[in-house]
Design a protein around this nucleic acid. Structure first.
Length: 389
DNA sequence: TAGGACACCTTAGTTACCTCA
DNA sequence: TCTGAGGTAACTAAGGTGTCC
């Protein structure tokens, strides 16, 4: 069984400087030079991403599981099909078409699928002043209810004007233009209108600004945000503004929603990864148990038949490269044979299960006797090994 | 060129509210 | 009607990055 497990690679450096090329990250881009630099950085990040890096700079000393390409089928542990994953999770990652991670995390695959987004992020203008203006007042209160809110509203209007214009544009620099805008597809009168729970926001915002009144997004709003999340797991300021305007939410709310959504996705991923690792562990434990048993049998055999186990070195030799056993004393009988316990056949019989004519002559003599036949070979059929190499 | 200040971003963790069985 | 669990919006803190001076 060939299982490549790379454990212990921290993400501290692996994920550094990768922001998925979605155009967020640095806020203010005040001139063309900054814009050019950002595009270069994003291009670099994409390259790094393509090299198998995933995630973002994170303090977590994550255990990184790297499954070598092409080995998973042999392991017999494919990633759970989308049907096994949670619907939410699979809906996000399904575009990748596979849950086998060959140097990527699942989310990375998703982001790869959305890689074209990176090209759209170039022209996004910073809305940092808006973000700053929206801080420091209760986001649950209507902006018009306070002076700060009014200021924020003013700023937001300015940005909205740009966002609205951008929304009508199909410029490659216009990230907002990529958002789905056909609310009728969701069967709602309009996500911003609140749909089935349209009144919740209005009533919440009228209650005079008690600390953090819980809002409940309407189904239409949630669906629209989900659709957007499927396209971009992160938002640049332009996208955030466009979404907020379309959904009749504050940009801060859109931002928070995406933060929480990413957290939920990561949680789901963690659960799936955990389950997979558990299954890997079970398989390896079983394999280890089987090999230990076989080793014990061989040792017992050595005790019972010491003669056969002290064959001259010149009599039996094994080519380490091709794993063929050759016997000098009987060259004609030297035939290809699978290595013994370290390379068990798929049937689990090891060398004992090889046809006698393919065994080395000394081994043929050894195993021709029923008494000396290894227990492992006598116990056919053995339980199929969970995975074969 | 180096470094501090600033703005803005992210994630992780937590809190509080809401819904529902 | 009460209650506990679960979902989730919102918040806080810490750390990273980019830009400006």
């Amino acid at each position: 069984m060939e299982l490549g497990l790379s454990l212990g690679e921290t993400m501290a450096d692996a994920g550094r400087d990768l922001v998925l090329g979605l155009g967020m990250g640095a806020g203010a881009r005040r001139d063309e030079d900054a814009e050019t630099g950002r595009r270069e950085r994003e291009a670099r990040r994409e390259l790094e991403f393509g090299a198998g890096r995933c995630g973002r700079s994170s303090p977590e000393p994550a255990v990184r599981l790297t499954l070598l390409p092409g080995l998973m089928p042999g392991l017999g542990l494919p990633w759970p099909p989308p049907s096994e994953a949670t619907s939410e999770y699979s809906s996000v990652h399904a575009p990748s078409g596979s849950y086998c991670v060959c140097g990527f995390s699942l989310s990375s695959l998703f982001f790869l699928a959305c890689g074209e987004v990176a090209e759209m992020a170039g022209g996004s203008r910073s809305a940092g002043h808006l973000e700053a203006s929206t801080r420091g007042f209760d986001v649950n209160r209507a902006p018009s209810l306070s002076a700060a809110g009014a200021a924020a509203e003013d700023d937001e209007e300015q940005d909205d004007a740009g966002a609205g214009a951008a929304g009508a544009s199909s410029s490659p620099n216009n990230s907002a233009g990529s958002f789905p805008t056909d609310f009728s597809a969701h069967g709602q009168a309009g996500p911003g209108g609140g749909g089935d729970r349209a009144g919740s926001r209005a009533s919440d915002e009228d209650d005079g600004g008690s600390a953090r009144k819980k809002l409940r997004l309407s189904k239409g709003q949630s669906a629209f945000l989900e659709e957007s999340f499927k396209e971009h797991a992160t938002l640049n300021p332009k996208q955030k503004l466009a979404l907020a305007k379309q959904l009749n939410l504050r940009p801060r709310q859109v931002e928070v929603w995406f933060q929480n959504r990413r957290a939920r996705t990561k949680l789901k991923q963690t659960e799936v990864d955990c389950e997979y690792l558990k299954r890997c562990c079970e398989t390896l434990t079983e394999e280890n148990r089987r090999l230990q048993k076989e080793l014990a049998e061989l040792r017992a055999l050595k005790t019972v038949h010491p003669f056969y186990m002290h064959l001259p070195a010149t009599t039996l030799s094994m080519c380490p490269s091709c794993e063929r056993v050759a016997s000098n004393s009987a060259p004609a009988a030297a035939a290809p044979a699978q290595a013994a316990s370290s390379h068990p056949s798929p049937a689990g019989g090891g060398i004992a299960s090889a046809p006698p004519e393919q065994r080395p002559s000394s081994f043929a003599a050894l195993f021709s006797s029923p008494l000396s036949r290894p227990l492992a070979a006598q116990q056919q059929p053995q339980p199929q090994a969970p995975a074969s190499s």
